[in-house]
Every structure is written in structure tokens, then in C-alpha cells.
Design a protein around this nucleic acid. Sequence first.
DNA 1: TGTAATTGCATAGCACGCTATATGAGTGCT
DNA 2: AGCACTCATATAGCGTGCTATGCAATTACA
Lengths: 149, 149
Amino acid sequence: MTASDTSFDRDTSAGYLVNHMARLFARELEAGLKPLGIGIGMFPALLQLWEKDGRTQRELVTALDIEQPTLANTLTRMEKKGLITRKPDPEDGRAQRIHLTDRGRALQAEAEARATAVNTRALSGFSESEKDRFLKDIGRVIDAMKAPT
Amino acid sequence: MTASDTSFDRDTSAGYLVNHMARLFARELEAGLKPLGIGIGMFPALLQLWEKDGRTQRELVTALDIEQPTLANTLTRMEKKGLITRKPDPEDGRAQRIHLTDRGRALQAEAEARATAVNTRALSGFSESEKDRFLKDIGRVIDAMKAPT
DNA sequence: TGTAATTGCATAGCACGCTATATGAGTGCT
DNA sequence: AGCACTCATATAGCGTGCTATGCAATTACA
């Protein structure tokens, strides 16, 4: 028996491959967004706010499927960068409503273009139908993993 | 024009979906490995060492496609946990050879079983052929992104 | 109404990825 | 031999994810 007889096969491990792919996406998106002063953690939050401004942290946490402290920290960095402001919710003394600044709004077109460029390069070898199928497959995995154990 | 007319579609953004999927994998693998005292960053390094022990940091960095300081930090944590030792390379005074401890070796079967369980759950809705195709597609994306721009 | 449970957010602290930079050992060239 | 260059590793510092925990505001209910 050789060492490889007992070894886990990385090339057929979904988790291993997914992690590698995600790091490659993150590296490229980070490089694309850096000149705009946006970090990769801020981008999903910005997408939500560009779609609908003035949400609470709770609403964003649910939409993004990240933990609340993760978002709280990200929002603090975004506030320091001048992308958003936090305003007390007039109807709930516990809540903060998150609003884009003019600067935050102004970055939408350029940031989305750069993210699209990364996606395009990643799927450059895929036909339209292959791309659709691949994205649907990812959706199936996400659904399977979000289902209760 | 409504807000959504100008918004990026998250459900068809490969990067967005890949990031989400990778976080779900990471959460589950972390939960599975935590009782073994292994972090998710250590697991890929362990896979390499289980396959072939006594490699240099440089060799591991290349195999794992992570940056050298990332691995150096991970190895330091693994050393503190008693999973590996660093021994000076007798032939190159700059290099360290990384060796598994008995404890590091002993964790292989259980850790691989837990990682396999995560993969199985993630792809539970896939037929064998769908699974093969999906993993190949991920490989295609990885290749596309690793290609020089 | 008053107390307990829940909810929204912040903070502390850690893992793991990254870039930038330092240091010491090998290599190569004159 | 001496000097510059490259290579292997370490360290500093930061972003983004996580869990655990604390606090203040709201809600629920006896």
C-alpha cells in the first residue's frame, strides 16, 4: 500500500475545488474593486443597498446570509470609507437604517462592470447553456446545504 | 425606471453564487473538523502531508495555490496544536521540512470521513453523472481563472 | 403593569486569506 | 574572493468570515 492509496482525492472533492475556485474569484474581484476603494466584503452589501436603500442591518444580514457581527464590522469600514451612513430608525430604538452616501451610489456602474468582467473571464469557455446549467447547479448545492440537517 | 432596473442580478452572478456556496462549505467543514482540533485552513495542508510527508513550505505553497505567508501562519498554528514539526533541511539552510507528528497522522481517517460527509450532503441531489460534470465544470473555471490575463 | 423573553446591534477575539517587507542562505558572475 | 541577485521563510498589518457575549430597546404575557 502506497501513501496515495489512502489519500483523499482532491480533484473529486467538491469542497476542495469550491474553495479553490472561490479564492480565485475573490483575488480577481479584489483587484478589480481595490482602485474604487471597495473591499470584496462590501460589494454584496452594496448590491443590496443599490437595489433598495435604507434597510436595517437585520434585513441585510438575512438577505446576505452572513452573520450579524460580520456585517456590523463591514458596515463600520464602509462608514469610515464614506460609502454609507447609519441613521437611527424612527420607529425602533434598537435599529439603525443604512443609507448610501452620494459617493456610495456613484460607484454602482463601475463596480458592477468590474464584477461582471470577472464573471465573464471565469466562464469564458462556457456556452450560454453550459453557463446556465452551471449556475443552476451551484444553486442546487446552496439549497442542499441550507436545508436543515 | 425602478431601482431594480439598474441592479446587478445576484442569482446569475457566478462570483456571488460561488462565494455563497464556498461559505456554506466552509461553515460545515469547520463544524465537522472542530472536534478534531483541526481548522479548515489546516485541512488542505494535511491532505498534502498525508499524501507525502516531509515536504518543504515551498512545495506545499505551490501544491495548495495559496500565498507563502498564509501557509507560514497556518503551519505555525499546526505546530502549536502538535500536528506537525518543522525540521531544518539538511541540504538547504534556508528551507524547513514539514513533518507530521503521530497525532497529525492519526487524524487522517476521521478528518477525511468528515470532509467526505460534507461533500456528500452538498451533492446529495446530484446523480453520478451530474456530479462528475459539475466537478469538471469547476475545474474548467479554475483553469480559466489561473490562465494569464 | 411589571417582569421575562426576544430582538437589534456592538464589541472582543480568533482563523485564514491577502500584500508588503525583512532576513538569512544559496547562486552566479567578475 | 567579493558582490549582486535570487530564493525560502518569517513577520507585520489588514480584510472578511466566524462564535461568544453584552447591552439596550421592544414585545409578550402572567
